[in-house]
Design a protein around this nucleic acid. Structure first.
Lengths: 344, 344
DNA sequence: CAGATTTTGACGTACGTACATCAAAATTCT
DNA sequence: AGAATTTTGATGTACGTACGTCAAAATCTG
C-alpha cells in the first residue's frame, strides 16, 4: 500500500518527529539528516496524503479573486461562477473573496493587488492589465509566496504563475479563417469592432486576425478597428454609423464585448454584413446565432476558467503538480448548430 | 464552522453511535429516531466530510473501464488517458481496471459487463453498443448499485447513470453547417464516409448532417454514406474508388475513424474535394489541417472524457452531486488556426 | 573535558469520520 | 409483570498527518 510517514521514518532511519520537521520545513534538522530523509522519500516513493494533511491542520485555502466591474455578460458570468465556487467552498476547503475593481483602471487594480498583499491569502486570481506597475505589484505578491494567476487577459510571460484563458492570437486567427472562408469568391470590406486596444487580449485577437487576413485573404479589405469600450451603447452607435456610411460591408469581426449593442445595430441595419463573428456566448449572441444575425461565435467557458484557477491556485499552495491538459482553456467555436442546449 | 457529527448528535439529541448508524445505513435504529436525525441534518446543514470519511475507511474506488480494441488514434488516446488516470490512482484513491473487448462486438461487451457484475466494482465505464442485450446487462449492474457510465457512444436514455461524450446529432449538424456555408454559391455533390451505421454515435452524426443539408443546402446533393468500418485501409480504398468514379466531388464529411486512410486517399487524389471535414484530432488530421488537405475537424477531448467519467463515477459512489456544467463534453471545432500548440 | 547548544526522539492530542464491542435502556412479546 | 428482544449509548481504536512538549543524545565551543 501507499507508504506513509511511518514507512518513511523507518526507511530513513529517523523518528517521526524528524520526518515532520523535514516535510514541513521546520528548523533544527542537520543537512545530512534532511538529505537522508529526502533520499528515502523518493526511494520508497512517498507522497504526502494531502487530504489527511488538510484534515489534520484544518486547512482552508484563502483566495482573492479580483474582477473588473463591467456590465458585459461575460464578466457577469465570470462573477456568477466565482459566487458558485464560494458556495462550494465548504466542501473544497476554500474561502474565496471576490474583489471588485473599476474596469480598465490600472491604479485600482494595483490597489487591489496591494491590499491582497496585506491580507496574505494563499493565492490571487485577477483579470490583468498589462503594464509595468501591475507586473511589479504581482512580483511583490509572488515574493511572499502568494500564488498569482491571471484570468481572461494575461500579463507578460513569467511574471505570473499561470494564465487561465484562451490563446487570443489563435482566436483572432480563427475568426479570420472562418470569415475569409465563408466569404470566398467575393471581394469587399471587412470591419473590426474592438473594446479597447490597450488590453492585451483585444490586441492579441486583432493581431491574429489581421495576420491571417493579410496573408490568406488579401482580396478582402480590412478597415481600421473601431473601439467600443465594451459598452453596448457605444458599440451600437459606432457600428450603426459605420453601416450607414458604407452599405457594402461584407464582414464584421467583433472582438470585444457589448454584444447587446452589436446585435441591436445589426438587426436594425438596412444591409447587414454577410458574415458576422463575435466573442462570448451570452443571451444576445445565442439569440443572434439562432436567427442568423450572427454567423459564428468564439467563446471561452467562464465556469471552466474559474474552476481551473481554483485548481491551479490550490496546487500552487500545496506545491503539487497540475494536469496541464486539464487546465488548457480551449477556444470554443459556436455555430447555430452546436449551441449547447439549455438544461431543463 | 462546518458542523460535524458531534454537532449533529447534539442537535438530534442522540449519541454519536446512532448518528453513525443512520449515516451509514446500519440497522437497529427506530424510524422515529432516524427521522429525528435526518431532520436535524438538514436543519443544521450537516454534510459529511468525504475526505475524512475516506481516510477513516481506507476507501478506494474500484472502477472498470471497458474499451474496444481498435487501432484508430482516438481509441488509443482514450486508452492512454485511462492509463494516465491509473497512474494518478494513488492520489485520487481510485483503482482502475482497463478491460479490452473486440470492437463492434456485442457479445464480447456483454461478457465484459457480466464479468464486471461478478467483480462488483463501484462503477463501470464503457463504450456502448446500443442493443437490448447490453441494456439488460447494464441494468443488472445498476441493480447491484454499480454505477454505469457510457463513454463516447451512448445507450438509450435512462438505461445508464450518465453519458460522457459529445452530442453527436449536434456534431453532424455542425459539420453540415460548416460544409454548406464554406461551399456557398456552388452546387455539386457531397460524400459521406461513416464507420459503421450500427453504432449509435455514427448514426446520430449522419442524422444531424443530413437534416441540415436537406433543409438548408438543398443545392448540394448528398451521396449515400460509405462504411469504412473505422479501418484506415478500407476507408482509403473506398474513398479512392469513389473519387476516381466521380471527379466532381465538392465536399466530404468523414464521420468515423480511419483518418490515416482518409488523408492518404485525399492527398493522392487528382482532384480532391473542395471542402473536407473529419472527426477527431490526431496526427493525421493535424497534419492534414496544416497543409490544407482537411479544412475542419470536429473533436472531443479524450482526457476530459476519462477524467469526467471518473468524477461522475466517484460522485455516484459517494452519492454526491456533480457539477453538471463541468461534465458537459463540448464539440470542439478545429481549423488550421486554432490547433492547440504542442507543449514543449 | 565540561558546559553550552543544537539536533533528534518519544509521546500525546487533534482533525472528522468509520467501525467494533459491550452495557444500559426502551420496547415488544407472552 | 417478567422475559426476550430491539434500540441506543458509551467508549475506544483507527486512518495519515500536523503540531506541541520535554527529555535524551549528539555536536560544538572554549
Amino acid at each position: 500500500m501507499k507508504p506513509t510517514v511511518h514507512d518513511l521514518a523507518e526507511a530513513a532511519g529517523v523518528s517521526l518527529a524528524t520526518i515532520d520537521r523535514v516535510l514541513n520545513g521546520r528548523s533544527g534538522v542537520r543537512d545530512k539528516t534532511r538529505n537522508r530523509v529526502l533520499e528515502a522519500m523518493d526511494r520508497i516513493g512517498y507522497v504526502r496524503d494531502v487530504a489527511a494533511a488538510n484534515l489534520a491542520r484544518q486547512r482552508f485555502y484563502d483566495f482573492d479573486f479580483i474582477v473588473p466591474v463591467n456590465d458585459n455578460a461575460f464578466m457577469q458570468a465570470l462573477r456568477a461562477e466565482i459566487v458558485a465556487a464560494q458556495a462550494r467552498g465548504g466542501f473544497e476547503r476554500t474561502r474565496i473573496r471576490l474583489i471588485d475593481v473599476p474596469a480598465f483602471d490600472e491604479e485600482a487594480l494595483e490597489g487591489a493587488l496591494a491590499s491582497a498583499l496585506q491580507r496574505k491569502p494563499d493565492g490571487v486570481a485577477f483579470v490583468a492589465i498589462d503594464s509595468d506597475r501591475i507586473v511589479t505589484a504581482v512580483s511583490s505578491l509572488r515574493d511572499e509566496g502568494i500564488g498569482a494567476v491571471t484570468i481572461v487577459s494575461d500579463l507578460a510571460e513569467q511574471s505570473r504563475d499561470h494564465y487561465v484563458g484562451i490563446d487570443n492570437v489563435a482566436a483572432g486567427r480563427s475568426a479570420a479563417s472562418l470569415l475569409g472562408r465563408f466569404l470566398t469568391g467575393v471581394d469587399g470590406t471587412v470591419a473590426i469592432m474592438a473594446g479597447s486596444l490597450s488590453v492585451r487580449d483585444h490586441r492579441q485577437r486583432l493581431d491574429g486576425f489581421l495576420a491571417v487576413m493579410q496573408s490568406e485573404f488579401p482580396a478582402l479589405r480590412v478597415l481600421s478597428p473601431l473601439q467600443g469600450r465594451d459598452e453596448a451603447h457605444t458599440v451600437e452607435r459606432l457600428l450603426t454609423k459605420l453601416m450607414e456610411e458604407r452599405g457594402d460591408l461584407l464582414g464584421l469581426y467583433s472582438l470585444g464585448a457589448g454584444n447587446d449593442g452589436l446585435v441591436r445595430a445589426l438587426s436594425q441595419a438596412r444591409v447587414p454584413p454577410r458574415f458576422v463573428i463575435a466573442h462570448e456566448l451570452d443571451i444576445a449572441t445565442k439569440g443572434a446565432l439562432r436567427d442568423g444575425t450572427i454567423d459564428a461565435v468564439l467563446a471561452q467557458d467562464a465556469g471552466h476558467e474559474i474552476r481551473s484557477a481554483i485548481r491551479v491556485l490550490t496546487a500552487h499552495a500545496d506545491r503539487t503538480p497540475i494536469i496541464a491538459a486539464q487546465e488548457r482553456i480551449r477556444i470554443e467555436i459556436y455555430l447555430r448548430d452546436n449551441l449547447p442546449q439549455e438544461q431543463p
